[in-house]
């Protein structure tokens, strides 16, 4: 066939058939490619395995030097003392929690209010302008926020609270709150925007105000997405490093004072990494034990967020 079909002086099908001697090569490519792609996909799995394995192995070594009971229950963290060193993680956890709670207190109301404004009140144009700006806010490197906390927020706070130390929990807490606000705002706005308009219209037609619709209809309908966004944001706050390393100080304390110098789990790892704790020392292994604790905290929060958004997903 083929020749009578056009004025072509050649048959394309015939040429294709000739090229088919490359077919074996083509078939090989078709078989090799998925395998290579699978290998790249496995890298992400290996990363997780690597993280978990590294943390567990080095933490295990740490526990041959320091008992688990001491780690979990001792009230003091004095790793650098030669004579009466103590490795109780509680002071570091307390530092982390102080900062995270302050961050949550700042971020939840502001983030939710922004989400409601963007989803329920703002015009399309406003939303399209503001959302990217919030994303920019989320994309600023944390070291910049750290600089901001130390050189701007702390001095202002010290005007108001004279007893505030230069390094404290309040200032980094507030700045981390500012940092995670866009995350809550953006993710909650997504959850609220996906509530179907018919539900809003039903309430509006009964004479409800926009505020009542937002609080009594949209918020309950989107609650799982909103809670998930808050949990994720707090998880970010727990793992945040540079802001607390710059503005939080390096004094592990087990108390609820927010005006004094603190140390979070992340800041401790930074402190040790910058110092000259030699490979193989107890201090060297302690950063893995602290890192593992931090990892567990954030992992549980992330799984919780996933569970909430899956378990309570509304079917509209």
């Amino acid at each position: 066939m083929a020749l009578q079909k056009s004025s072509n002086t050649f048959s394309i099908q015939e040429m294709i058939r000739e090229k088919k001697n490359k077919k074996a090569k083509k078939l090989q490519i078709e078989k090799i490619v998925p395998f290579l792609l699978l290998l790249t996909a496995i890298v992400s799995v290996l990363t997780t395995i690597g993280i978990v394995f590294t943390l567990i192995a080095e933490t295990f070594t740490f526990f041959t030097k320091v008992s688990i009971t001491e780690f979990l229950t001792a009230q003091k963290w004095y790793p650098f003392s030669e004579t009466n060193g103590a490795f109780g993680i509680l002071p570091l956890i307390s530092g982390t929690l102080k900062v995270s709670i302050i961050a949550a207190i700042v971020a939840i109301p502001i983030g939710l209010a922004s989400a409601i404004f963007l989803s329920e009140y703002a015009t399309d144009r406003t939303r399209r302008t503001i959302k990217p700006i919030l994303e920019v806010l989320a994309g600023i490197p944390t070291i910049v926020y750290g600089f901001f906390a130390l050189t701007f927020v702390t001095p202002i706070l010290r005007e108001v609270i004279p007893s505030l130390e230069i390094f404290n929990a309040l200032s980094p807490g507030i700045v981390i709150g500012i940092m995670i606000t866009p995350m809550i705002a953006s993710l909650s706005e997504d959850a609220m925007s996906s509530v179907p308009n018919s539900m809003r219209e039903g309430a509006l037609a009964l004479g409800a105000t926009k505020f009542e619709v937002a609080i009594k209809v949209v918020l309950p309908a989107a609650i799982s997405g909103i809670i998930a966004s808050i949990v994720l944001a707090i998880s970010r706050a727990i793992g945040e490093t540079m802001i607390v390393a710059v503005a939080g100080g390096s004094t592990p304390n087990l108390n609820w004072d927010v005006t004094g110098s603190i140390q979070t789990m992340t800041a401790y790892i930074v402190q040790v990494s910058q110092g000259d704790a030699g490979y193989g020392t107890t201090i060297y292994y302690s950063i893995y034990a602290v890192g593992f604790t931090l990892f567990l905290f954030t992992l549980i929060m992330n799984l919780l967020a996933q569970f909430i958004s899956r378990r309570f997903r509304e079917e509209y």
Partner: peptide, 13 residues
């Protein structure tokens, strides 16, 4: 060039 029908083409035709 002049179109040269193949046998197959003639048969089809």
């Amino acid at each position: 060039t002049i179109v040269k029908p193949t046998i197959e083409a003639v048969m089809n035709h």
